[in-house]
């Protein structure tokens, strides 16, 4: 069955400037796609359009899963996003955040599942702390817990190793490797280490 992300004639312009024009890409199953470009080139905007968070000026992004084209709602259910713009609830603990996001996704929640995910992202034993009290590196790890909670088919990573220490960077490496075995990774980065994972790249000028 066909699984892929297809970007067709995608353009984005704000009233004052064009970001990118007529982008055409097919990202196949079990691959890593990396978007490159200097600051302000439109990498984050490209990822936001891909996630359905903002509209494109023209063109479309099609997700095909098991040969079926997904609706915008179905698309969102298949995406896990880690981005500097994304924030979790600082007034809730890590476990409460995971409980909430399981609830709104209609997934069953168990403490064991929460502990398993928190252990995977290196936050073992910190599940009952408020996310607002976390360091920036811990918050970045928590974003991975949020993104991986529903076992998404497409993992979208914007500057994936921001604020992370060496262990955190190793965690991102393992997340990317695991995701590539079962789905698609789409990344915006300029870090040579992360670019080395790319099966396909797109450079935004």
């Amino acid at each position: 069955m066909l699984n892929q992300v297809e970007v067709k004639h995608l353009s984005k312009a704000y009233s004052y400037r064009k970001l990118f024009t007529d982008i055409n890409v097919i990202v196949p199953d079990r691959s890593v796609f990396v978007v490159l470009g200097h600051n302000g080139a439109g990498k984050t905007t490209f990822l936001r359009i891909l996630c359905g968070l903002i509209p494109a000026t023209s063109g479309e992004v099609l997700f095909t899963l098991d040969g079926k084209s997904l609706s915008p709602r179905e698309k969102r259910a298949q995406i896990g996003l880690v981005s500097p713009d994304l924030e979790l609830y600082g007034e809730l603990t890590a476990v409460e955040n995971l409980e909430f996001f399981s609830g709104v996704r209609g997934l069953p929640f168990t403490l064991d599942r929460a502990r398993e995910i928190l252990e995977m992202v290196g936050l073992k034993g910190r599940g009952n702390d408020y996310v607002g009290t976390y360091s920036s590196g811990m918050k970045q790890r928590m974003k991975y817990a949020y993104a991986l909670l529903h076992d998404p088919y497409i993992l979208v990573l914007d500057e994936p190793t921001t604020n992370l220490d060496e262990k955190g960077v190793a965690l991102v490496d393992s997340v990317i490797r695991r995701q590539r075995e079962k789905g698609i990774v789409i990344m915006a980065t300029n870090e040579p280490r992360e670019v080395s994972y790319a099966d396909k790249t797109l450079s935004l000028a």
Binding site: C51, L53, R73, R76, I79, L81, S83, D85, L86, E87, L88, Y89, G90, F101, V104, R105, Y146, H150
Partner: peptide, 17 residues
């Protein structure tokens, strides 16, 4: 204001929100 709207938009359908 807190930037949690992106996480909520991706995780939840509009009607339950």
């Amino acid at each position: 204001e807190t930037g949690t709207v992106i996480a909520l938009k991706l995780a939840a359908e509009p009607e339950p929100v």
